[in-house]
């Protein structure tokens, strides 16, 4: 069976085409295209402009994806799209595009939970069987484990998401949003050496990033006012790179800690990293060290699958489609609020 997936819950528009050969065989990725709405340094992406970006690119991307996959319209079994969670306006644009394709090609629709898309794609690519999942992106921070047909949320950010914290700090520093603000922070952090004091906010399996963002913003303002400030311990001049280094070391330590706690709680030794922040190499390294200490291993994917993409929506949608799930046209809405544990996972035991 073949499905096309459309994703546009944030600033990435993704179109992917996947094929599920006979059951038990690995899925085949026929095409996986993405176009990102990049804003100038110091600016975030607004829903209105992001929706416009998606509307103007979706037709071209679908045509290109079909051509690259070398499939005919008659080969496609269903059209999968992101039902939520995400930003309202961009979600709507993509849902309308999906409806249009469904009517034009006379195919059935499948609305997919964005987070479940990430998890299912991560499992498919890495072969992780039943891992504890850390889902970290610009809008979500969740520690998830599977139980009784649902992906259950064990821990999450109590205020802003970890990726949002990084994005907003990139705006404070006015560094480039291309290809992604988090990526540029990661590169800067590689040059950092001094660890400054930041709050450390873990509550059980939950964590909080808003206070940390305020603190690092204060540190950035102080640095801007006195560029010659020296670290009292090493005597080295503090740089923006040190700020990025400090921020990464602190927030990733928090993420690894809550993941470890969830692993201990459910007695699992596998951990799967998904979401845009999941392709950060420092986070992967730290998570790997933690997992090794528990006699386990880490599963992560690269930016093709970590960052929002259409193929994951196609994949999770096709899984649901194979179990008989359909989204009738009149119900093909989208929603900003759609918890990971709201979706019934019929395809797993």
């Amino acid at each position: 069976m073949i499905a096309i997936g459309l994703e546009g819950s944030a600033n990435k528009l993704g179109v992917g085409i996947i094929s599920h050969p006979s059951p038990g065989k690995p899925a085949q990725i026929l095409s996986n295209l993405r176009h990102t709405f990049v804003t100038p340094p110091g600016e975030g992406f607004l829903p209105k402009d992001t929706a416009k970006h998606h509307r103007s690119w979706v037709v071209q991307l679908v045509k290109q994806a079909m051509a690259e996959a070398k499939v005919m319209i008659k080969d496609v079994d269903c059209i999968c799209y992101t039902k939520g969670p995400g930003m309202g306006a961009p979600l709507q644009s993509v849902a309308v595009a999906a409806r249009m394709l469904a009517l034009l090609w006379e195919k059935e629709l499948v609305g997919v939970n964005h987070c479940v898309g990430h998890i299912e794609m991560g499992r498919e690519i890495t072969g992780a069987d039943n891992p504890v999942v850390l889902y970290v992106s610009g809008g979500n921070t969740q520690v998830i484990a599977y139980a009784e047909q649902r992906y259950r949320i064990f821990g999450e950010a109590l205020d802003i998401a970890v990726g949002n914290c990084l994005d907003r700090f990139a705006r404070t520093l006015e560094i480039s949003n291309d290809p992604a603000p988090g990526y540029n922070i990661e590169q800067l952090a590689k040059k950092g050496k001094v660890l400054l004091d930041l709050p450390y906010a873990v509550k059980g399996m939950d964590c909080s990033f808003a206070g940390i963002l305020s603190s690092i913003d204060v540190l950035a303002a102080e640095l801007k006012a006195n560029p010659e400030t020296k670290d009292p311990i090493t005597g080295e001049v503090i740089t923006t790179a040190d700020l990025c280094f400090t921020l990464q070391e602190t927030i990733y330590a928090m993420l690894v800690e809550i993941t470890e706690r969830a692993m201990a709680h459910v007695g699992s030794s596998q951990v799967l990293l998904v979401g845009g922040v999941g392709c950060n190499e420092r986070l992967q390294e730290m998570m790997g060290l933690m997992a090794a200490g528990r006699g386990g291993s880490i599963f992560a994917t690269d930016e093709r699958f970590c960052i929002d993409n259409g193929i994951m929506i196609a994949h999770a949608g096709l899984r649901a489609y194979e179990t008989g799930f359909r989204t009738p046209l009149e119900d093909s809405t989208c929603t900003q609020r759609f918890r990971t544990d709201e979706m019934f996972i019929k395809w797993r035991d």
Binding site: L158, A161, R337
Partner: peptide
Amino acid sequence: MRGRKRSMLG
């Protein structure tokens, strides 16, 4: 309520 609000963005 606050915890549940976390499903805002994707």
